[in-house]
Nucleic acid binder design. Structure first.
Length: 261
DNA sequence: ATGGCCTGTTACACAGGA
């Protein structure tokens, strides 16, 4: 089984890129982030035309996640509230960033972690608070499912080798020590990085800034991830980044990352 | 480089991204 994750930065703007990619890479499930569209306007029929159905959880203009599957998913759920009580979730489901479903016995959780703007900002505090609730959510998910694949745009580069040379990394959003520690704390519930099972060296990225011609210079960041529960991590046979779509006309600034198990 | 560029908004500059 193959599962892909891709922050598309507007599904309507990127529709041809995504459907063409699915035709060339017929994965079982594609997890989308930053769809930026309300559910009633999601382009369902374009995915049906290439053999997929869509489960969507969107909002106007910002955020939004979706599961694009060839076969029907079981037990699809939206938001933290599907697992946690209302007092714990608070206002965090106002932004549509969490969707989950089960396929072939694997519980897949698709996330769009808040960006955080800049270190020390209100949005940074929101990101840390969101990651704290995510840990509680995943603790529950792992207690109820043996095979779990948590994927998406985490907006954190875990290690220095996941970033091109950047002398301000300790003060930079996505690489500051506090948010890296917050991510490690989330993963301590029992999740491992599928990409690092197969590839040790740096220089492999999933996001390149639109500005300054960063893609041709490979000045990127590895911020999109597949994290696996122990049983699934043992089973995993491959994890790769497909950087090709970043070189197309009007690309997303992120590219797909695929895991196979 | 509080720079560079992209997307959506009842837009005509702004918020948000990362």
């Amino acid at each position: 089984m193959q599962v892909a994750s891709w922050n598309v930065n507007s599904i309507r703007t990127r529709l041809d890129h995504v459907t063409n990619w699915l035709s060339a890479h017929p994965v079982d499930l594609l997890c989308l982030q930053e769809t930026k569209v309300v559910d009633q306007d999601f382009p369902l029929t374009a995915f049906e035309a290439v053999g997929y159905r869509a489960y969507v959880y969107g909002q106007k203009a910002y955020n939004g996640v979706a599961l694009i599957s060839r076969e029907p998913l079981e037990a699809v759920s939206m938001g933290f509230r599907a697992v946690l009580d209302a007092a714990t979730v608070g206002d965090l489901d106002d932004q549509k960033r969490v969707i989950s479903g089960r396929l072939n016995g694997v519980r897949i959780v698709n996330l769009y972690v808040p960006n955080g703007a800049s270190v020390g900002s209100d949005k940074y505090d929101y990101k840390l608070r969101w990651l704290g609730v995510l840990k509680q959510y995943l603790t529950q998910v792992l207690a109820e499912n043996a095979a779990v694949n948590v994927c998406g745009d985490f907006n954190v580069a875990p290690e220095n080798k996941d970033i091109h040379s950047d002398k301000n990394r300790d003060k930079h959003i996505m690489s500051s020590p506090v948010e890296r520690e917050a991510l490690r704390d989330v993963l301590s519930v029992g999740l491992s990085d599928a990409f690092r099972k197969f590839t040790d060296e740096g220089g492999h990225y999933t996001w390149w800034d639109y500005r300054s011609g960063s893609f041709p210079k490979n000045l990127g960041w590895r911020i999109d991830h597949h994290y696996l529960s122990p049983a699934l991590y043992e089973r995993a046979t491959r994890c790769y980044i497909d950087a090709v779509p970043r070189g197309l006309e009007k690309p997303s600034d992120h590219v797909p990352i695929v895991v196979e198990y």
